[in-house]
Amino acid sequence: MSRTPIALHIFHWLFVLFMVAPLAVVVLVSFTDKGYISFPFDGASLRWFQAIWNQKSFIDSFWLSLALGATAATLAVVLAVPAAMAIAWHRFPARDLALALLMSPLMLPAIVLGIAILRLLSHLGMTGSLAGLVAAHMVVVLPYVLRLVIAAAAGYDHALSQAARSLGASAWAAFRRIELPQLVPGIAGGWIIAFVTSFDELTMSIFVSSAGTTTLPVRMYNYIANTIDPLLAAISTVLIALTLVLMIVLDRLFGLDRILGGKA
């Protein structure tokens, strides 16, 4: 494998540069001491990171997105795990249809889903409600959980359940003590991907959130639409740093390519 031609190496490093450049530039710009975005700049400071603390609206949105992501991911797990077990382990009429329906949010453009759910919420008089936001996020992240749990369930050896039952375990005990623990890696991976997806979701949330329930990406988008200043770069830098930590954890736990396979 050492016979890789030099041209491929050059291509690879250009590709890496292309992928890193926009993120690196955001990080660099966030350390400016100027009041506007310019790069390269001469004075470095942390003033924009300190400025974040005075932007209560961004802080609030950050906590909202965090809570929203955790809630949506947890609800999605609660719904997706039994569904994945049914789909992976049972043959029943309408199985394919059920799978298609549960996976459909992946096929639907986020913008279409956004206006569709906005339409539903306005019908119910729930426009801008927190419950509506949570429900919308839950159904959007559910396919990610479902896919990873189905993959885990498909690899499960049913002889383990049979062994448990032969040793006197009830169906429930076999589920709790044997089956569920075997699915945990898939569930954990699914939860994290679901959480990240919800935390980053913009397009649908624009339609579903309101002044009182503005998620972080929506607030950032609205801010960019008006002005671009180093404050946003500083917030982005914080997010990039957090993601980097998460990525290292994910790679250690699952392998980045495997877990992101659930994203594509």
Binding site: V196, L216, L239, L256
Partner: peptide, 16 residues
């Protein structure tokens, strides 16, 4: 480097 950006908000990447 290559797959990581999938986990970062599109808003951040577009800002870049």
């Amino acid at each position: 480097v290559v797959l990581g950006p999938l986990l970062i908000s599109v808003v951040v990447r577009t800002l870049g």
